[in-house]
Amino acid sequence: MNKLIFGRYLPMNSWVHRLDPRDKLTLSFFFFILVFMANNWETYLLLSIVTLFSIWMSKIPWHFFFRGIRPLIWLIIFTVLLQLFFSPAGSHVYWQWGPFLITQFGIVNSAYVFMRFLLIIAMSTLLTLTTQPLDLANGIESLMAPLKIVHFPVETTAMMLSIALRFVPTLMDETETIMNAQRARGVDFGSGSIMKQIKTVIPLLVPLFVSAFNHAEDLSVAMEARGYQPDTPRTHYRQLVWHRQDTISWGFYIVVFIGLLALRQLP
């Protein structure tokens, strides 16, 4: 479990770490759109270079980054295989067995799906690795601010999000402790038949839920005691400041966007 880095924050001090969370959020979103616009190997190459460049700028060690997303590869391969075997006929068929058929279209398409997945996962991992959870929550709150007009509880939602993020490490630690405690009582996690494995989930999940409820109950009392009232305006200790490098990074992505539009036109 320690190896999976998807969704974790790695405290370092790089150019990317220092970017405004709103900048990183909008850029990531913009990048996802670009990924879906890619339509040939040249465009995918361009986006791969952009991704590698962004990771390089973050100073996160390569081996750490790629070992961290490796566990997700299985998910990608599964999707790719589905794509490969079940894509519709219509182009050159290489191989067929019952409902399974491999076509030229299928191969190309699944290669693209593979790239799409990989790029999106790499970029979102980079986002969370370089942005503190609270900054992410603040960024989301700030970007959602227009929704206040339609009476969407933006502040409360942001508060819920930031508390959830704050408790992720706590609950991860507790999961590990509970697993160890049940191992010591003779539970084998991750071995035996499917039925056996499902049974081992109960001694883990029940204590975890109980603990989460206890946290929530105590926390709500503590928050109230410190004067928290839902749906009332609050000020913010963390101020988001848009710096020059935020504009620069957006400028860079705009250039990439134009490059992509050009490369799309290639046959």
């Binding site: 503190q132 959870p133 609270l134 930031s162 508390i163 993020l165 704050r166 706590t170 206890n214 946290h215 105590d218 926390l219 503590a222 928050m223 410190r226 004067g227 928290y228 009232q229 009332t232 305006p233 609050r234 000020t235 913010h236 200790y237 963390r238």
Partner: peptide
């Protein structure tokens, strides 16, 4: 553990002040 609202020490100390605007 159950009264630490903020994601960092400074954020947590500021919580009450934020509530008081």
């Amino acid at each position: 553990e159950n009264q630490f609202v903020g994601s960092t020490v400074a954020d947590d100390v500021a919580f009450g002040l934020e509530n008081h605007q």
